[in-house]
Amino acid sequence: MDKRHFATFYETYVERIYKFVFYRVGGNKALAQDLTQDVFLKAFQAFDRYDPAVSQVSWLYTIARNHLINDHAKRRPGVDLEEVEGTMLAAEDVRGRFAQRHDEQKLLETLTMIPVEDAKLVRMKYLEGWSFQDLEAIFEKKSGALRVQATRALKKVKQLLRDPHS
């Protein structure tokens, strides 16, 4: 794809990619900024190989995710990102950022108690700001199905907030 379009690409996705990284590095702002920068540098280098037929979101998400896995492997060898991804939000430093409100802290803890895919969907949709159309390519489901899944996941969160042992 023509590299002249990269500017629009950057403006569209910089915030979402930053949030995506931010929540996966335990809320470390400096690290999130470094990794976001790396993701965009990598994306630019691969931009002329990008096939417009493929979803932009899916393509960029893959770059960001792979970069995070590589970075994570360097920092914590032997631990798979997939394993820690679900528990990231419960990390002390992330919680510290949102701990001003007790209910927000509880909400983050509750996210770790629902199925991993549901938690990932809720996190990407409501915390990171991806649209259901964006998420179609990542979850390989129609946006209608994702909408239903997200509502059900939120209902589970609501139920767990009421009764954590349910």
């Binding site: 915030e15 930053y18 999130a32 209910d103 909400l107 915390l127 990171e128 509502t151 609501k158 907030l161």
Partner: peptide, 20 residues
């Protein structure tokens, strides 16, 4: 907390995570 409140809380947390 109802569903609308949960979404509102997430939106509030999302704003905290915005890049500078």
């Amino acid at each position: 907390m109802n569903l609308w409140n949960i979404k509102r809380r997430f939106a509030s947390m999302s704003r905290h995570a915005r890049p500078d």
